[in-house]
Nucleic acid binder design. Structure first.
Lengths: 216, 216
DNA sequence: GACGGTAGATTGACACTGTCAAATGACGTT
DNA sequence: AACGTCATTTGACAGTGTCAATCTACCGTC
């Protein structure tokens, strides 16, 4: 066998290219992420990235993977720091929204422009996506077990996630043009979630599980 | 003066092109919306659309405008049909989510792929976006006046919108892979919003307005 | 130490895109 | 009947992602 690219060298090039791609996306948007530009900035030829990634979509997928990993780490840190169920759920929510606020371009890349990604995401990406959901799920489960809320943990997690993602997404789409800053709105949403649980803990029926047949 | 394109003919071509663009977007994604393909499907030459639209971005902008208009109309119909403040708010939320569920590609186009649109949106588009917000704002305001919730109507509207958009957006991104259907999750969210208000109406302090200084 | 094979990088080429300039076409007016 | 003008078409260009063929430099072997 002849000389082969060391694992380290492969990883180095991959991370370096991901960093450049992320930076260019943040600066010039998706249109600025072009194989030629990335390669120029890295000092290699246009098709060299094809040794390390299958596609352009594959490159973006790697950036997304890193994004979900950092989001998961932020959530996990929040979970570790807060044992109380109610406060933990708030802390996870805050960590989620803080991530979206601090790394807006990463968050955008993670959730938007879906067609630019390969239809079959990497196993690694799917794993990180799941990992980023776990702190939410576990926090909700803990809250359910503590009697703070009632209902299916999965459904409740989805609702929680939707509330958080909605705030982040609308903010990034610049649809929230009130006087409130993103941080204020984030805190308002977290507070609202906490109040929801405090009030739900005083009542018996589960808030979902069956779609009510309520007509006008 | 010589013959000039009649208003009707211009409008016809524009709407026809928008319809084709929307259909191709739904079928092939953004990559399927190409001036060549649109023109072929319309039986004209590649650059003919440039007589009726400034840009490709302008075409997508027109499709988006129509989408926001239909969303606004659906919301307004829901408002008209339901006078009771609480039920009206639920009805608007249901109409919003039903629209997202029934026209997923339109909704996606309205809120995603922001870089593909002109940085300065048309006045018409901005008007329709605002129009689609008004039923939410007015429903929230009515609920505030009825004493169902307390707080800044703008902030509360943003939170409501975020909750709705979050459900729709995560669903369209295919991130919600639980057993629940989109309809069930929508109803769960609407129910949760209603419960939030019912519980809030029994208490005095406003749920936001000031970010609470709660520490662990 | 020279050589050959091969992994890795490069260049060339292709089909495709959005968009502009110039050329073509057709119609109402004089 | 000829003109002028608007609508449309064609030609062209820069730029894209990606594949094939080429080149380069290193390794193990003699």
């Amino acid at each position: 066998m002849s000389r082969v690219l060391s694992e380290q060298a492969v990883a180095d090039f991959r991370t370096k290219l991901c960093r450049v791609a992320a930076r260019r996306f943040a600066e010039f948007g998706y249109a600025g992420v072009t194989l030629r530009a990335l390669s120029d900035e890295l000092g290699c030829s246009r098709t060299t990235p094809y040794r390390y990634f299958r596609d352009k979509a594959d490159i973006l997928g790697a950036v997304r993977t890193q994004g979900f990993r950092r989001l998961a780490e932020a959530e996990e840190a929040a979970v570790r720091a807060e044992p109380d169920p109610l406060l933990r759920l708030q802390a996870v929510g805050r960590a989620y929204l803080r991530f979206a606020g601090e790394e807006p371009d990463n968050y955008r890349l993670m959730f938007e422009v879906p067609e630019k990604f390969s239809p079959a995401p990497t196993a690694e990406l799917r794993a990180e996506v799941q990992r980023s959901q776990r702190p939410l799920i576990e926090s909700v489960q803990a809250a359910v077990e503590a009697g703070l809320i009632h209902g299916s943990p999965t459904t409740l997690t989805h609702l929680l996630w939707a509330a958080l993602h909605g705030v982040a997404s609308l903010h990034l789409a610049e649809k929230l043009t009130s006087g409130r800053t993103f941080e204020e709105l984030s805190e308002a949403m977290v507070t609202l979630i906490a109040r929801q649980m405090q009030s739900a803990s005083n009542e018996r029926p589960s808030p979902n599980e069956r779609s009510p047949d309520k007509e006008s």
